[in-house]
Design a protein around this nucleic acid. Sequence first.
DNA 1: TATGGTTTGTTTAGTCTTGAAGTAAGGGGA
DNA 2: TCCCCTTACTTCAAGACTAAACAAACCATA
Lengths: 406, 406
Amino acid sequence: MALRPMARTDVNRSAILAHLGAHGPASRAELARALNLSPALMTQLTKDLLADGLLRELAHQPSQGGRPARMLGLVASAGRAVGVKVAADHLAFVEVGIDGSVLRTASEPFDASATTMLAKLVELLRRFIAGGADTPLLGIGVGVPGDVDRQGEGVVDSTQLGWTHAPIGESLRRELGLPVLVENNVNALAMAERLYGLGRRHDSFLVVTIGTGVGAAIVVDGVILRGSRGGAGEVGHTPVRDDGPLCSCGNHGCLETFLSEDALVRIARERGVIGASAGIEALRDAADSGDDRATAVFSEAGHLLGRTVAGLVHVLDPEVVILLGEGTADWTHWSYGFEPAFRAALIPSRRGVPIAVERWQDDSWAQGAATLVLATPFDADGSMGEQGDLVRRRLVQQAAPPEADS
Amino acid sequence: MALRPMARTDVNRSAILAHLGAHGPASRAELARALNLSPALMTQLTKDLLADGLLRELAHQPSQGGRPARMLGLVASAGRAVGVKVAADHLAFVEVGIDGSVLRTASEPFDASATTMLAKLVELLRRFIAGGADTPLLGIGVGVPGDVDRQGEGVVDSTQLGWTHAPIGESLRRELGLPVLVENNVNALAMAERLYGLGRRHDSFLVVTIGTGVGAAIVVDGVILRGSRGGAGEVGHTPVRDDGPLCSCGNHGCLETFLSEDALVRIARERGVIGASAGIEALRDAADSGDDRATAVFSEAGHLLGRTVAGLVHVLDPEVVILLGEGTADWTHWSYGFEPAFRAALIPSRRGVPIAVERWQDDSWAQGAATLVLATPFDADGSMGEQGDLVRRRLVQQAAPPEADS
DNA sequence: TATGGTTTGTTTAGTCTTGAAGTAAGGGGA
DNA sequence: TCCCCTTACTTCAAGACTAAACAAACCATA
């Protein structure tokens, strides 16, 4: 079988790869159960993948009471992926292996508002890619703070970056000749969480990030909810007070103007908790050393966050809420306000919803973007357009050994 | 997480029936376009439905420049459905034809908190059904204010009715021997809206109801978002003020304590706008006749609703928001507060989201419940369990003339 | 009147998936 | 040791769906 048709929407072959990448070797039966597919189909699909050289059979596993399972594993040399996080003032890069492990990271200053921004982005990406491993590069994931169009073209609107209809995806694709997946950064994080984190065991969950802003991603039945124009999850601009501070979106009193790092610093300065030119570190230090006024700043923010998340839990009824972002470094201070406010605001039947605060690492954003490349085929119905197909094609192309068919 | 096994439940035959019911006769080509299926499949499916006696070929339509279309229409005698709205103090019944048209309505007093409540419900349903037309009854739709489990069993939790784990679906099925579909009442309304209303032209929309409470239903890609335990859309208990009035859920300051009919009456009484024993009609009359303090009550509620809905639009990014419920009768008064608050609270890129206030009729709730029966097969992935199948089977069973196949 | 264009509907071959029924390979008693 | 049970995998027939090619029925126009 020289050229398998490699169908238009063959999600499941990729799902197998993604699952093996995320969980390590597994038997056909395990895969069938995990992916909710019939054993019959699993036989069929793995046969193809084995023939393509993407999978290989490993040792048998001791019997579980019946016939022992033949384990299947990824062929490790099958590929790598690169992720970029775009922020207003810098770029963060990550290279991951096909199993999602971080191989390499980098960070570069970047001015998102510069007119030459696109050229600069391409240049820095090229440089990072060049330094990479020898295994085939499957694609680039780009995480941006803002709305991305649904069709997977990669047109970005972002107040934070000052971009309107920026055709990031198309430009990068043209310049780099690689599959490029552009996604909202919180959604990218949710995807990573789904593949490697808590989301593995939950089909519907909510990811909330705190840090430079406030964001949310909604996963329903394993799929990211994008909304009609890719803008779902914009929780940062929930109106809180009519007469609140001016927000970057032009309105007054958005949630972000009370919870973002800048907001906390502003409030702390106004109250004289920290000096007029001090930053978030000063506030953190003060809180860590027991300054009541400093802990109050965090706990008030936690209170507001708790009420907001409670509202989201009412509206979306997730199985679990995952808290992420730079701000979680100070979570102990936030939690004094968050926990009581959150639980008190929930209707009784929802009070048991678990809140998971996951450890945050500096390259998490970029890692989330990178996993897009490995995960997107996972994401049914081509919400990422043809890029998923392209990634898959590259995988097969690289791995398939020349062979003759019977 | 199966990515679209799209189970054996044959959604499309039902979709054809539902479409014809909602829009009247159509050609195969029209159907294929409307339902986004290939013409080839449409030929196949309609052949089956014609053989089953559910469809019949009508006259040709004048050519549109090519071959003239052969119209297909429902066989009207194929079935009817009954819908019940369950409220704390009464039941509302509706009988609809296979095309969704209302054939008959009734209303009966009912005490949802009585221990004999289930028996009473069965009895009143039996009586209503008995008075119906001669065409086969396809099933019963039940709309309840509260959470319904996801599996379509029909287990209900409702603070409003004082029910916990009430096995409504199973009981009714056993007693009546009919398919029974239990659903949150706002979701039922959303389903009706999807089949017969604005939802026909929109895949993602938000339904918000105002009246005795505040509710929301979320439709994403044509499917109702139910959340992990069927409780999505509980917008009425969004926390608004820590020290607000006591809500039926046990918390203080829920949205409902500011926007429900009871809340408006309470506020108006407190302010002396209406007498201490006057009701919502008195407040409406006062507002209609230009009483500034009365209109202020409505417009303040509108303001709060506007900000809340803006938050939902940020989080869910719907194509359109549909406003329904008894409260929309006073919408002109609400809108003075709603419109400015809503638009002002939206981020610029969302300001264009249309708000549709649809005309409200007394039997809308029950009609929504009834359309569940006709619509549920529409609702992919068997989120309503086997009941959809049962309804379909009844349709075919009744209509199929005995015939031998080639 | 022929000719081409347009829309409608059907046939055919082929893909993806499943359920049912089998085969393979171990285990634990009697 | 033999028989049955369990689990893992495979084969097979069949359904749902699509793309592509075709046939049918009309219109316009030269």
